[in-house]
């Protein structure tokens, strides 16, 4: 894989045309700490692979931009050539009255392509997140593999995590799955940790770290992975 491209997103509207040629491989990491909109227009040539990770920090502890820090991401993916692989990863931390939206439109227009979507977020205060994930598999797009997961930890009664998977599958020889969870942490895990002497507050942070690490581990560059982990860790509570 080529070198990872790391982009710190500016406030306002942002366009990301990600058009990969035949057998091209790109890994892109986008850090969002300011309010704004991002449109990812993704087209992959035959045998191409894109690994895109978007970290949305709509929380008061991160970044210098003023609140409200609303972040809207649109991912429009067209898989028009065979054997392409598209991996979309998202992490969002949202607090106070902020809001993060991730809208994915994953189009398997031809067969033999693979797509993975993994979005995880934590919400505090009266924040809100929206995840809309559409997977479209065209009638002759056989041997498609399309997976989607959106997991949310909601830390306050006032916070809202909306998640809406939407699958339109017109081919019959495909592997597709989607899963969405919204919840607080498992009390069994917390009690187990407490019973070993890990205080409740620390146990909660460890579990949240582990939850987000499931996405961050997709970043191939160890230094950037560490930098992102530290940034996120310092915003957890």
């Amino acid at each position: 894989m080529g070198k990872l491209e790391y982009i710190v997103q500016k406030a306002g509207d942002n366009a990301y045309p990600l058009h990969l040629g035949v057998d091209e491989r790109r890994e892109v990491l986008v850090l969002q700490e300011c309010p704004g909109k991002a449109d990812f227009d993704i087209r992959l040539g035959s045998g191409a692979q894109l690994d895109l990770t978007v970290i949305s920090m709509a929380c008061s502890k991160a970044g210098a931009c003023a609140e409200p820090r609303n972040i809207v991401n649109g991912f429009k993916v067209n898989l028009d050539s065979e054997n392409a692989v598209c991996n979309l990863n998202g992490v969002y931390l949202v607090d106070s009255g902020n809001r993060v939206t991730n809208k994915v439109d994953m189009n398997h227009n031809v067969g033999h392509c693979i797509s993975n979507q993994l979005f995880r977020g934590i919400l505090w205060d009266s924040s809100r997140s929206d995840f809309e994930g559409r997977i479209y598999v065209a009638p002759d797009a056989q041997k498609t593999e399309a997976y989607q997961a959106n997991n949310n930890i909601v830390e306050s009664e006032q916070a809202r995590a909306h998640t809406q998977p939407h699958l339109e599958i017109y081919a019959d020889d495909v592997k597709c799955s989607h899963g969405a969870t919204v919840g607080n942490k498992e009390s069994g895990e917390l009690f187990y940790m407490q019973s070993r002497g890990i205080s409740l507050a620390n146990a909660k942070v460890l579990l949240k770290q582990a939850f987000l690490l499931g996405v961050l581990e997709k970043i191939s560059d160890d230094d950037l992975k560490e930098e992102m982990s530290m940034k996120i860790l310092s915003s957890l509570r």
């Binding site: 009690f191 187990y192 407490q194 582990a210 499931g214």
Partner: peptide, 23 residues
């Protein structure tokens, strides 16, 4: 609290030890 009991010297070996992915 459970963690204080642990510090004080109580240890519970679980019948069904809990899995904690990512830790």
């Amino acid at each position: 609290l459970p963690e204080q009991r642990s510090w004080a010297g109580i240890f519970l070996g679980f019948q069904y030890p809990v899995e904690i992915p990512g830790v």
